[in-house]
Design a protein around this nucleic acid. Structure first.
Lengths: 126, 126
DNA sequence: TTAACTGTATTATATGCATAGTACGGTTGG
DNA sequence: CCAACCGTACTATGCATATAATACAGTTAA
């Protein structure tokens, strides 16, 4: 069963996209694997305090991305391969670093200083 | 005159906030300094192809943040101090790194690998 | 002075996101 | 079998964002 215990909203981005990203990061980390059972829309809704329609929107997105499979009436399951996992990993890592690098450059920060700031934040984070 | 030549929309975040961030990063970089003249709402609207009301919303935000000053009928000017600049710098850098570090950790990426990815993206960026 | 510009305000429309409530039919385990 | 789930669909409301069109008063340079 895919766990959402560690999920928490904070971003300014749409909630349904935060859920999609959470699942994608779990896949990259290996904590979510092929065949894993997804919590039902209603259960996850109650667990994280988000409207069932919003959960459905996230699941629909995951379905469209080929990350989960749903059958009307039955539960939903994760359907990924080593290849699709590598694709997700590459896309997420690229997106994460690209934004930081671009903004750091616009602020006139050097690469050395940027790396130093990342290392510092890494230690401060809990 | 504050230049928006380098500004380009891409983010999924609100346009007016992208404009605010663009100005803040320019201040941190030192390309935008105290007393600089802001382009008028209408001129910037035409320049970057965004509705004047959206520009006004961004300028209102900058005004509320104490970054610019406006007088009805006259032009708007940047009003920052070394102290406020340091505050903006610290807040932007912290926000930039915090999100990356948290997501990287959720993906099971090590600090060494994260730094390596940043360095790599730094070189690939143009 | 005055024409051109400025900031500011208003109303209206459209879209995306999130919530609330309800409903229907498929699946499944006791 | 059938009750308890499940996915799915629908209408309605509220809010933030973005656009469009218009208007008015203050400022400024020729």
């Amino acid at each position: 069963m895919v766990s959402f215990e560690q999920f928490q909203m904070e971003d300014g981005s749409p909630i349904y996209l935060q859920i999609v990203s959470f699942v994608q990061r779990g896949i990259v980390a290996g904590t979510i694997t092929d065949g894993d059972e997804m919590p039902s829309r209603r259960v996850l809704s109650a667990l994280i305090g988000v409207n069932p329609n919003t959960i459905q929107k996230a699941y629909r997105q995951l379905e469209d991305d080929g990350i989960i499979e749903s059958r009307s009436g039955a539960k939903s399951y994760v359907t990924i391969t080593p290849a699709s996992t590598r694709t997700i990993r590459g896309r997420l890592l690229s997106k994460e670093t690209a934004a930081l690098v671009q903004n750091m450059k616009q602020m006139g920060i050097s690469m050395e200083e940027a790396i130093s700031l990342v290392a510092e934040a890494w230690s401060e984070e809990e």
